[in-house]
């Protein structure tokens, strides 16, 4: 099964999760997701997701100047984002256990 299809539904959750502890700029977030095991995540999808979460008011951003190259725009999670993260986590847990249950029956 193509995991990129699965990823689309949960990328919000994944991005919020890796921003939970530390602020990060776009490529930072991409790296954290890959380091966490999401190897198939597309750069552009992450950047798009960041924009969507930002426009939905779950992230704030600030620019940090860089000596070489363009400035980096850091995103940080705010209270709305944290609430959404907690809520999505519960949804994901129950969904995953439901699916686990279904798959157990198939296997049995």
């Amino acid at each position: 099964m193509d995991t990129s299809q699965l990823l689309k539904g949960v990328l919000d959750l994944a991005v919020l999760a890796v921003l939970r502890k530390d602020d990060g700029y776009g490529y930072d977030v991409v790296r954290r997701l890959r380091a966490g095991g999401l190897n198939d995540v597309g750069d552009a999808s992450v950047y798009g997701t960041l924009r969507r979460l930002y426009n939905a008011g779950m992230l704030t951003s600030y620019v940090v100047p860089s000596e070489e190259g363009p400035h980096r725009k850091y995103y940080s999670i705010n209270e709305t984002g944290r609430a959404r993260l907690a809520e999505s986590r519960e949804t994901w847990r129950s969904f995953a256990s439901t699916l686990d249950g279904l798959l157990e029956e198939v296997a049995a």
């Binding site: 700029y25 776009g26 490529y27 750069d43 552009a44 620019v63 190259g69 400035h71």
Partner: peptide, 28 residues
């Protein structure tokens, strides 16, 4: 706003590219 993100991204990626690699190969 998008381009601010993307410029930093592409600039950083371009420093990571190998000898014969292009941005298109990495990013489409």
């Amino acid at each position: 706003e998008i381009m601010e993100d993307v410029e930093a991204h592409v600039a950083e990626l371009s420093t990571e590219l190998g000898e014969n690699e292009t941005l298109e190969q990495r990013l489409g």
